[in-house]
Design a protein around this nucleic acid. Structure first.
Lengths: 229, 229
DNA sequence: AATTACAAGTGTAAATTAAACACTTGTTTT
DNA sequence: AAAACAAGTGTTTAATTTACACTTGTAATT
């Protein structure tokens, strides 16, 4: 038997659906769009696209995120495959990915082009097909990941204040965190560098900016350290 | 636009690969087989099959496990989709699932039929394609799941002793556990029923059998309790 | 009948981690 | 000078996790 063995097997459309997350106004946001074609035309949808013959599924996901945001350096992770028979009109197997992007880098002209918008994760409308389930699973995964890997920084600009970082974690876990305990923990990890500059946009006193030191983090991991929030 | 919109998109072979796990001789085992056809004929492979047009990917995975083990009631969970371009000769996107089965229920005649065998997870040979990676990701996922959900019982018969349960957890985490601490924790959950009978196959004293009380567990979960090993 | 062999079974103390909690500081505006 | 207000800071208590060693029950042996 050779490759011919495969030839009587069914082939399927395979799509990627991307949960593109950004952070602003102290809340996680997700990019969703009004679907421009049937089925479910006009329904709210995640950003998706079909997997082409000559790209891996990871590449397809990157391509989709780039296409809808204009952003190229993205932290992505697969959420899982969704393959119920009636999840779309035609049978489409979809692989969900979440992406964490710096919302400031978003090319806003694309919002018009695709009728897309950033919606607070606490205020998402019902999405088409199983997209709401994909978001639910993503938040779950993100909570587990963020507890053990400093991925939150992908949602922030290079400089950020501790109050901002805290509200990011609060938005991920959907619960309030005590600021003394939070600061203790995050600073104890020794992966943040305090800068001299302050952000005065939220208070008269101002909050110091910090920077994530990736090299230091990589080094600590290499040494077998575990990170846990 | 209608369904016609899809029609210029590429279609793909989609397979499921199953990491079928059993527990015996105090160790996790995985069912692997010698691949009977090209490419990679003769290489060690996970149990897999193609997804058919009229079944969901979950159904396909169940079908494959049943086909290769004869077991129908199986705990399964998706590990993730693997979609590198050159992971197979033809382009095949594969979705990995792990399955936890009671190895006593295995239909041994199928071992011959498919040239399959149970191999200790610590002694796996190199597997074809990305199957070794799938196993690695599975063990990782299993460790995280087993810490928070009593899924280990799917690998045991209805009655089991605490020493057996402990060595199951030791095999999942690939590390020794203190038996006093283990017993304390597992019994504190209050989801095990102690039976009168003893298993005397491993000691003169004998170890009491226990049973997992699913109803009690479900009830506790309903009450919002969290389980953690 | 007494002894041996051996896994099953049991409790406590120390260390670590997580949670709870309230006042001071720095700066701008009035 | 006072007011407003978010940023910043330590300690105490509770909960959890870890470390650790001897006794028990039974079958086999003497």
């Amino acid at each position: 038997m050779t490759a011919a063995f495969y030839q009587n097997k069914d082939k399927h459309y395979v799509a990627v659906d991307c949960i593109i997350m950004g952070f602003r106004e102290n809340e996680l946001h997700i990019l969703i769009a009004k679907r421009p074609f049937e089925p479910m035309q006009g329904g709210w949808s995640l950003m998706g696209g079909f997997v082409n013959k000559f790209e891996s599924i990871n590449e397809a996901a990157k391509r989709v995120v780039d296409e809808y945001t204009g952003i190229e350096d993205i932290y992505m992770e697969q959420v899982g495959a969704f393959g119920e028979i009636n999840r779309d009109l035609e049978r489409v197997i979809s692989i969900a990915y979440y992406a964490l992007v710096d919302i400031e880098k978003f090319d806003t002209s694309l919002a018009e082009k695709y009728d897309a918008r950033w919606v607070k994760i606490t205020q998402l409308p019902e999405l088409i097909f199983d997209h709401s389930l994909m978001v639910k699973n993503t938040l779950n995964l993100l909570q587990r990941r963020a507890a053990v890997k400093p991925i939150g920084f992908n949602l922030l600009q290079e400089q950020f204040t501790l109050p901002t970082l805290q509200s990011l974690y609060e938005s991920i876990y959907q619960e309030d965190i005590d600021k003394r305990n939070f600061r203790k923990k995050i600073l104890a990890m020794d992966i943040l560098e305090k800068l001299d500059e302050k952000d005065k946009s939220n208070s008269r006193k101002g909050a110091y900016y910090y920077r994530f030191i990736k090299d230091k983090y990589d080094q600590l991991i290499q040494q077998g350290l575990h990170f846990s929030i």
